[in-house]
């Protein structure tokens, strides 16, 4: 399946869906178990706990030593 088609169809869905139906679809997808904005994920094994910092300068591919990815778990600079 062409992912572009998926995006177009979702765009169309979002343009047409009523708020009530959208809320029902979100509920079916599990939105109620999501944390509130600003809340921490409850386990270090959740990807949301991995705060990824990607620092690059002008050209990301020109000098890879300029880039680093740090898992900011208190040890990252």
């Amino acid at each position: 399946m062409d992912f572009k088609e998926v995006v177009e169809q979702i765009n169309q869905y979002l343009a047409q869906v009523t708020i009530e139906q959208f809320e029902r679809d979100l509920q079916r997808a599990g939105i109620e178990q999501c944390p509130d904005i600003g809340e921490e994920a409850d386990s270090e094994w959740q990807p949301e706990r991995l705060i990824v910092e990607y620092s690059v300068f002008e050209e990301p591919y020109s000098d890879l030593t300029n880039g680093y990815i740090a898992i900011a778990n208190g040890e990252a600079a």
Partner: peptide, 10 residues
């Protein structure tokens, strides 16, 4: 649900 953080899985 405007106060909810949309998780990848959802």
């Amino acid at each position: 649900y405007k106060g909810k953080r949309l998780l990848n899985g959802v």
